[in-house]
């Protein structure tokens, strides 16, 4: 194919795109007109009078347009606002846009990096499912952090009360109280709890931890060095939405590193927060909500 042919083809494509854009704009204007018309019609139907202030429906903040706003900056502002409130007035939550998730597993890796997770422990795997048969095949991805349930089945089963629900909605584990019975792992309907068996990646090639495995984890704002017989080894471990970062004004590692901007994090109690705005006009789902666990993680379909 010559250069001219290529240019010609590109020109046709551009034309074609322009055509599509024009059609889209026309349709959009048409819808706007229709909207304006229906609005007027509704007003006319109600008698055309003024709506009293008392019965006025509060105006919702505009839905977010990720192409216009830098969602990371917006979420950081949300975080700042939430942290200025007392801890029991905020409720951390997460929204994951499944249409934007490309299954890169960047969130899984950044989580491992942030929390210095050993073999056998994973806080945010990305579930993969292939459906259909060739050539009609599609692949679906579903990142699965801890659901931070408001009615968490893992909390009441703990025989020593080592796992508990914080006032800000996070389900936490007191590593130094956990006896390692693993009952909570069986009780979680999302398999969001894993056990620290005491393994190191270095065990595979050497006979001990690699230098990077000796870097402490800072979970719950404390310094945790993994040593045999000491917590968090022989403890159940789980995602905390990177509480140690969040309380210092940083977004969870998975949210910060999601380059598809599929993960939103913030205060569910704040109507202005992005986690609430992105759910407008979208189909929202929660995992196994029929169990009555009331997860704090929402999925946009």
């Amino acid at each position: 194919m010559s250069k001219n042919d290529l240019l010609k083809e590109n020109g046709e494509k551009t034309e074609s795109r322009r055509g599509t854009l024009a059609k889209g704009l026309a349709l959009g204007l048409g819808l706007l007109t229709l909207d304006a018309w229906t609005g007027k019609a509704a007003q006319a139907a109600s008698g055309g009078g003024q709506v009293s202030k008392d019965s006025e429906i509060p105006t919702l903040p505009p839905p977010v347009d990720p192409w216009q706003e830098d969602v990371t900056l917006v979420m950081r502002q949300d975080l700042k606002r939430a942290l200025s409130k007392p801890v029991d007035k905020r409720h951390w939550g997460m929204v994951i846009d499944l249409q934007r998730c490309i299954g890169c597993q960047g969130c899984t890796i950044s989580c491992i990096n942030e929390n210095k997770l050993p073999p056998g422990v994973v806080y945010r795997p990305v579930l993969e499912e292939t459906s259909g048969t060739f050539p009609n095949v599609s692949k679906h991805f579903l990142p699965r952090p801890c659901m931070q349930c408001d009615n968490p089945p893992c909390v009441p089963v703990c025989p020593v009360g080592a796992t508990y629900k914080r006032p800000d909605g996070i389900v936490a584990i007191d590593y130094n109280a956990c006896i390692g019975c693993r009952y909570c792992i069986t009780a979680c309907p999302y398999s969001a709890r894993t056990f620290d068996w005491g393994e190191f990646y270095g065990d595979i090639v050497l006979s001990g931890p690699l230098p990077y495995e000796e870097v402490p984890s800072l979970e719950y704002g404390k310094v945790w060095v993994r040593e045999a017989g000491k917590s968090p080894i022989e403890n159940t471990r789980k995602c905390t939405f990177c509480l140690e970062r969040v309380e210092r004004g940083l977004l969870p590692a998975c949210t910060d590193t999601c380059f598809g901007r599929a993960t939103y994090f913030g205060d569910l109690n704040d109507p202005e927060a992005l986690v609430n705005r992105v759910r407008q006009n979208r189909q929202v789902n929660q995992l196994k909500s029929e169990l009555g666990t009331h997860p704090s993680v929402y999925y946009l379909l």
Binding site: L127, C188, S191
Partner: peptide
């Protein structure tokens, strides 16, 4: 698996 696809996720 409690969630479909968990076995292939990691």
């Amino acid at each position: 698996p409690e969630l479909a696809g968990l076995q292939f996720s990691y």
